[in-house]
Simulated assay, not measured.
Amino acid sequence: MVARLALLILIAALLSACVGPPPGEGCRSCHRPHHAEKGTCVSCHRGNGRSTRLAIAHYRLVPAELSHFTIPGSVRVEEGKRVAERFGCRRCHRLGEKGTRLAADLDRLAGDDPVRLFEAIRQPVLFMPDFRFDDRRTADVVNAIMAFAGAAPAQGTAAVPLVVHFEAVRAKEGNLFVTKCGGCHRLLTAGEGGLGAGTVAPNLSGLFSPFYPTPFKPDEPWTPERLGRWLDNPRSVRPAALMSPVPLTKEEKAKLVPFLRADLEN
């Protein structure tokens, strides 16, 4: 009987060690509580709030800089939204139920890892512009994206994210954009993936969308007709333009237009 009692006590102790303290109690053994009205520490920072072992407690931890999206009315989120608008994130992405589908639908990132998103912006994939944001500005954009994603309607499992396939540049050597524009510019297209290899001039993805950050002129978005005028003589539009004229026939200009279009689903 005594042996059985000792065994039960041992099992209870082992189970207690496995279950650990209530969520967040492990965190408070090292960290001072803040925003207690939000619930436990893992409500904002994730990780494992039951453990006091650092490697376990901090597994997939969301640092403070990337958790502002969990705080209603956060000024960091609002600043991130302004940055995303200024730099034209929606010319390639869906964000806040607006934008194109040339690249990943950012409204589907609810529950994703903000740290992974932070690294994706700091080290952009092929054909994504390198915005050269500092850590704070990148964190603001991440918080804005996560806030938009958290507020987006649930999309279920029916919608399949668009996958863009990139091919070797040599396979597109006959492409008009590649031969006439691709030495200086890059472009993400709906039909042919990424085009061009240039990095010295602006990324032209989503040029004809309402979200392109630099318009033809103030309050005048890019259109096929305005692009034609620009190609004929950039300095007639902006006297300080560095770009030289690109002599194209009317037919060649028409062939460029489909590459620069981006379907909108608003």
Results as ranks from 00 to 15, higher is better:
Arg136Asn: 09
Ala110Gly: 14
Asp113Met: 02
Asp107Phe: 10
Ile121His: 09
Phe127Gln: 00
Leu126Met: 04
Val115Glu: 02
Asp134Lys: 09
Pro124Met: 00
Pro129Phe: 02
Phe133Thr: 07
Arg108Pro: 03
Phe118Cys: 04
Pro129Tyr: 02
Arg137Gly: 00
Asp112Gln: 14
Ala139Glu: 03
Asp134Phe: 07
Leu126Glu: 00
Ile121Lys: 12
Asp113Tyr: 14
Phe118Leu: 12
Gln123Val: 08
Phe131Leu: 15
Ile121Trp: 05
Ile121Gly: 06
Arg136Phe: 13
Pro114Tyr: 10
Asp135Pro: 11
Ile121Ser: 07
Asp130Tyr: 12
Phe118Lys: 10
Leu126Arg: 13
Pro129Glu: 00
Arg136Gly: 13
Phe133Met: 12
Arg122Trp: 00
Arg137Asn: 06
Arg122Glu: 06
Asp130Asn: 15
Met128Lys: 04
Gly111Ile: 05
Leu117Glu: 03
Asp107Ala: 06
Ala110Phe: 09
Pro124Asp: 00
Ala120Met: 08
Leu126Trp: 02
Arg136Glu: 12
Asp112Met: 05
Thr138Leu: 05
Arg108Ile: 03
Arg108Lys: 11
Met128Leu: 05
Asp135Ile: 07
Val115Thr: 15
Val125Lys: 10
Pro114His: 11
Ala139Lys: 05
Asp135Met: 03
Leu109Cys: 11
Asp107Leu: 05
Arg116Asn: 06
Phe118Arg: 08
Val115Leu: 08
Ala110Glu: 07
Ala120Gln: 07
Val125Arg: 14
Glu119Trp: 11
Phe131Arg: 09
Phe133Ile: 01
Gln123Gly: 11
Phe118His: 13
Thr138Tyr: 04
Asp113Ser: 12
Thr138Arg: 09
Val115Arg: 13
Phe131Trp: 15
Asp112Ala: 14
Phe133Tyr: 10
Pro124Trp: 01
Pro124Ala: 01
Arg116Lys: 12
Pro124Gly: 01
Ile121Leu: 15
Met128Thr: 03
Thr138Val: 10
Thr138Ile: 08
Val125Cys: 01
Arg108Asp: 00
Gly111His: 06
Leu117Cys: 05
Ile121Tyr: 08
Arg136Gln: 13
Thr138Glu: 04
